[in-house]
């Protein structure tokens, strides 16, 4: 029993495969960065749609946000990986395949963009209307009002929430191993098949993610507190 427990925490097997595991971790982070870009971009677009004066656009934005907030990430991942390529194949009469990395980035980016839509919207709506009117009446143009009055306040308001979304996104990147993107969990599964010793490997993976995400969340908390302090004028 004690021997098994020790085996669970010793890192010898991990050290042996360190290069391949580090590469896996790097894959996690690249999927994270790419899908974060997509998520923020689509989140901004959908947020602007939600705030537009046109009811039809508003409705589309709301539908988009609700759709992606309510879909489990794994279901979306599998769907994106298998269904759109087939539909495109039928439409274009040529064989279309999505690479696992591409599907992973699209699925995680879309899933996360639903949350970003709401975060951005809440941030922008938190600015009192009077600020905009005051800025406009002093002669600032629409763009300048956005740049110097709305955004500095809105960004400060939504930053803590957005940073938390990024952490959730990083946690979700572990799912991409399920469609054979070679991330850390994928490498762990492969090495497990080779070595038949799941215990130290999966425990090690759990500890690695734990340390990384705990550190990042602590950092986020610190940054958010700093921003909140700056905001309190």
């Amino acid at each position: 029993m004690i021997g098994e427990w020790m085996q669970a925490v010793t890192g010898s097997l991990f050290w042996e495969y360190r290069s391949i595991l580090l590469f896996g971790l790097a894959t996690n982070f690249s999927v994270f960065f790419l899908s974060a870009v997509l998520a923020v971009g689509m989140g901004l677009v959908a947020c602007l749609a939600r705030l537009s004066p046109l009811p039809s656009l508003r409705w589309c934005g709301a539908f988009y946000a609700e759709l992606f907030r309510n879909t489990p990430e794994y279901v979306l991942l599998v769907w994106v990986h298998f269904v759109p390529p087939l539909l495109l194949t039928v439409l274009l009469h040529t064989r279309v395949n999505f690479s696992p990395l591409f599907s992973a980035v699209v699925a995680l980016g879309l899933a996360s963009s639903g949350y970003f839509t709401e975060t951005f919207r809440a941030g922008i709506l938190s600015i009192p209307r009077g600020h905009v009117e005051a800025a406009r009446s002093t002669g600032l143009s629409g763009v300048l009002t956005l740049r110097w009055v709305i955004l500095p306040q809105a960004v400060r308001k939504m930053l803590p929430e957005a940073l938390n979304q990024f952490i959730s996104l990083l946690k979700s990147t572990t799912l991409v191993s399920l469609i054979a993107v070679p991330d850390l969990m994928y490498q762990v599964a492969m090495i497990t098949q080779e070595q038949m010793r799941p215990m130290p490997l999966y425990s090690g993976a759990a500890i690695i993610y734990f340390v990384i995400i705990l550190t990042l969340s602590a950092l986020v908390r610190k940054i958010s507190e700093g921003w909140r302090a700056v905001g309190r004028v």
Binding site: E4, K171, M185
Partner: peptide, 23 residues
Amino acid sequence: IEFCRSTPIYVQLMWVNYVWPEL
């Protein structure tokens, strides 16, 4: 609490599934 909140659910699932039976 920190462990539960800071580890991805998929990693926890694999960990529980493969490691707990042995542990």
